Simulated assay, not measured.
Amino acid sequence: MTARMKELAGEIVRLQAELDREIEQRRRALGWSIKRRIIRFEEGIVAQQRQLRISVTGLLKQASPATILSAPVIYSMIVPLALLDLWASIFQAICFRAYKIPRIKRSDYIALDRGHLAYLNWIEALNCAYCGYGNGVIAYVREISSRTEQYWCPIKHAVRISDPHKRYYEFLEFGDAEGYRARLESFRDGLRDPAGAKRAIDAGSRPLP
């Protein structure tokens, strides 16, 4: 990693911390907080939210025919999503154990917490749960596949990739044959011991990802 890349990475970390502070301030302004994955609303907030709830009948009256007709197609995606979720979990349970890579906590990516919102009727809450599950599965699988790519092929593509995963920026440049042979095991070590890899980077002892 070059000095400029380290500088940019540090700036990203600083901005993320600033964003987290702004999010926390916004949470307090909306009257809720979260601690250890438990959501707490201030007194009276739930009652205020219920006043804004639309009945299921009212929601269906507002829906266009296209929305109603397309709903079964949308929900049919639950089958491949559930299979992907199951297969990815089996994959990491077997392969990551074999590679000695720490396994990913599924709960860090799949959140079904929107049902706590009192302003949602049961159809809206179901829709939110479905979207949370679907996007959570994709994020979960993406992290599994990104760790797999770092283990087997930490090389950037020659062409520009739209929205690459977060590990991609640390990968070796396309065509860096010497770097690949010299550093492949370092990338793998970084997966097995992320804390050790960070210490090595900070000390400048070796250029781990």
Rank of each mutant, 00 (worst) to 15 (best):
I68P: 04
K100T: 10
P154G: 03
A182D: 10
L120C: 10
Q150C: 07
E11I: 07
L8A: 12
W87R: 12
D193K: 02
R50N: 13
D202F: 00
K35W: 14
W87K: 12
G204T: 00
I78A: 13
R142M: 15
I78L: 14
S205P: 08
F91W: 08
G44V: 09
I101M: 07
R97S: 15
D85W: 03
E22P: 08
I144V: 11
L208T: 02
E18A: 12
I144E: 01
L191A: 03
Y168I: 00
S162K: 04
F91G: 09
A47N: 08
A9Q: 02
D202S: 04
R14T: 11
V141C: 05
L81T: 06
A3D: 04
R183D: 04
G136S: 12
P65I: 06
M5W: 10
G58L: 01
T2M: 07
P207E: 06
P164H: 04
R50Q: 15
P209A: 01
R106N: 09
L15C: 00
L59E: 13
D176I: 06
A139E: 13
R206G: 00
W87E: 15
F41R: 03
W152V: 03
A200D: 07
K166P: 09
L172Y: 03
A125K: 14
K61F: 12
R183N: 02
E42S: 11
C95I: 14
I123E: 01
W122Q: 10
P65N: 07
D176M: 03
I90K: 04
G10R: 03
A177P: 00
L52K: 10
I94T: 14
L69Y: 11
L112R: 01
D193A: 00
F171Q: 05
G10W: 07
Y99L: 15
S33F: 05
G58R: 00
P102I: 09
E42H: 05
H116M: 13
G136Q: 08
A63E: 03
P164R: 07
P154H: 01
L52P: 02
L126M: 14
Y151F: 04
H165M: 08
A129I: 14
S33L: 07
G10E: 10
G115C: 15
A125S: 15
K105A: 15
R199F: 03
A17R: 13
L86C: 08
S89V: 00
F174H: 14
Y109T: 01
D108I: 10
A200L: 01
K156T: 00
L59A: 11
